[in-house]
């Protein structure tokens, strides 16, 4: 390495530092303007009625997104119910058998699942559920979302449980507690906050997913409570209304964007609070 003049080197160092600071701020700020733009466009659409009314036909001002909001909530609840039990069990399995052939194979399978493009998940669930059952349905949408949640939850469960030291397991086993009770009553509760954080993060990821729902939940202009019927969701509504030529529908889509970002943000904050308050630490 060429040494060079010391004052030249110091100047170069200073210039680099200020360049990084200026460049980092000037590349992050415009991105935050995106957020500002969305909020300033959508805030006028939001009122009480926005949450409780159905979208109005184009030409009429006002209307709400209640169908999409309820659809999103039902999709989240259903997909969580499908994904959480196997995902947590899988996480326990991976944390318990760390280096066998099978567990490495399973780990790679989880990795592959995490990388599947969301649109491919959509056509898969179409082939598995929609085509055999003959119709689009909320349930098929929830299955698609559950497939996306599964790797996220199982990975965070595995990582959390791996942090719990082995002596805790050994102490419990030494007291004569059977293995399964040790896992369920000792290991799992000590890692609960980490598992919970993973679940919430996975929900915040899938809440905004559109592509897997295009050919599964499909969309619905009305409120739907029946999981065998198609249903709308916030991202689907944004997609459909953004592409429409009507100003009133664009306004609804901007409003829905704010609600969606708020949901994602809230979930992220909750996960932060949980992981801070009940930190898994030994």
């Amino acid at each position: 390495m060429k040494a060079g003049n010391i004052s030249y080197r110091i100047v170069k160092d200073k210039i680099f530092k200020y360049f990084i600071i200026v460049a980092a701020i000037s590349s992050a700020l415009p991105l935050l303007f995106i957020l500002y733009y969305i909020v300033s466009n959508g805030i006028s659409a939001i009122s009480w009625g926005f949450f409780f009314e159905l979208p109005k036909p184009p030409g009429e001002i006002g209307g709400g997104i209640s169908n999409a909001l309820i659809g999103t909530i039902i999709l989240i609840v259903t997909s969580s119910a499908i994904a959480i039990p196997p995902a947590v069990l899988l996480g326990i399995y991976l944390s318990e058998s760390r280096n066998s052939m099978v567990s490495n194979l399973v780990r790679n399978a989880v990795e592959v699942m995490q990388g599947i493009p969301s649109i491919v998940v959509g056509i898969l669930v179409y082939a598995w559920v929609v085509e055999p059952s003959g119709s689009f349905s909320t349930l098929s949408g929830a299955i698609a979302l559950a497939i996306m949640m599964l790797p996220i939850i199982s990975k965070s469960t595995e990582e959390t449980l791996r942090m719990i030291p082995h002596y805790i397991l050994e102490a419990s086993l030494a007291l004569g507690v059977p293995y399964y009770k040790t896992i369920l009553r000792v290991i799992l509760p000590s890692g609960l906050s980490g598992i919970l954080t993973g679940i919430i993060i996975s929900i915040s990821r899938i809440a905004g997913e559109t592509a897997p729902l295009l050919f599964t939940a499909f969309g619905n202009p009305f409120i739907n409570w029946d999981i065998t019927e198609p249903s709308n969701s916030l991202p689907l509504l944004i997609f459909n209304y953004a592409g429409s030529p009507y100003k009133e529908w664009h306004a609804l889509a901007w409003g829905a964007s704010i609600v969606l970002i708020a949901i994602v943000l809230l979930l992220n904050i909750i996960s932060k609070i949980i992981s801070k308050k009940w930190e898994v630490k030994f």
Binding site: I34, A207, G208, T210, P235, I261, V264, N268
Partner: peptide, 8 residues
């Protein structure tokens, strides 16, 4: 920014 859904 990472949390904003792609549709938005």
């Amino acid at each position: 920014l990472a949390g904003i859904p792609s549709i938005i």
